[in-house]
């Protein structure tokens, strides 16, 4: 028996909006520690890892570990039927072939339930090694989204370079080229507006902008984003989800042949 009650149901709606274009089908894993998902995109270039910790739910009952295969397009259709202020409860029986999403309006005067069929999905769980990153950049998520969107109008790939001077985003295409440099700044008023760079050594990596733009659909989940980079390793783009967890995107760099 599984029963997870999330008071801030809009978080789940936002999570689905953030990942449904990257991944079509995925297994949601439920255990004592939380509700999680790990899935790769169809080209095996990017991976998304979601964690919603059990203590972030108002009520969290998971009698035994459960893996539920869901089509994210269909799940998103159902969650779109929940109001932004609704409380969402996810219910499933052990060994059952469906999951139920229950939506309650804040004043409790409307209750809906939507049952969705589960599916069998063969997925390999990728063990991502713990690594020390050469550079970690924390910046406003809206700024990162803006840069990715702007540069994708010029080119297909972006070179992200971190040095002691700041983080530089560069692209070039048929019509020309562009560079955006964000320097470290400290905002006294609002930590969310800060750009903070922790660097052990300079790093420069090339990525397909198409994927980074897809990741920025998670911008609504967090005011800040963290980019963790090491030489010749996938970048980790992380959005914290309030007090409850995180969504991390891993993207393989492009390497000179």
């Amino acid at each position: 028996m599984l029963e997870l009650r999330l008071v801030q149901g809009s978080l789940l709606k936002k999570v689905l909006d953030a990942i449904k274009d990257l991944v079509t089908d995925a297994n949601f894993d439920c255990s004592e520690s939380g509700f999680s998902l790990q899935a790769m995109d169809s080209s095996h270039v990017a991976l998304v890892a979601l964690l919603l910790r059990s203590d972030g739910f108002e009520h969290y009952r998971c009698d035994r570990n459960l893996s539920m295969g869901m089509n994210l397009t269909n799940m998103s259709k159902m969650l779109k039927c929940a109001g932004n202020d609704d409380i969402i409860t996810i219910k499933a029986d052990d060994g059952g072939d469906s999951v139920t999403f229950m939506f309650e309006s804040p004043s409790q005067d409307k209750v809906s339930d939507f049952e969705m069929k589960l599916m069998d999905i063969d997925s390999e769980h990728l063990g991502i090694p713990e690594t020390e990153y050469h550079a970690i950049v924390k910046m406003p998520s809206a700024e990162f989204a803006r840069i990715c969107r702007d540069l994708s109008t010029i080119g297909d790939t972006v070179v992200i370079s971190v040095s002691k001077d700041g983080v530089k985003f560069s692209t070039s295409g048929d019509i020309g080229s562009a560079n955006v440099v964000c320097r470290q700044n400290n905002s006294v008023d609002n930590k969310d507006n800060e750009t903070v760079i922790e660097m052990n050594e300079p790093v420069s990596l090339t990525f397909a902008l198409r994927y980074l733009n897809s990741f920025t659909k998670a911008t609504t989940l967090s005011n800040t984003v963290t980019l963790s980079m090491s030489k010749e390793l996938p970048v980790v783009v992380e959005y914290k989800i309030a007090e409850i967890g995180h969504i991390r995107f891993y993207l393989a760099p492009k390497i000179e042949d």
Binding site: M40, A46, T157, Y250, A252, P253
Partner: peptide, 14 residues
Amino acid sequence: TPVQNDLMEFYAML
């Protein structure tokens, strides 16, 4: 032109 590699190949190298 830089080539796009598979994500798992990077982690396999570690």
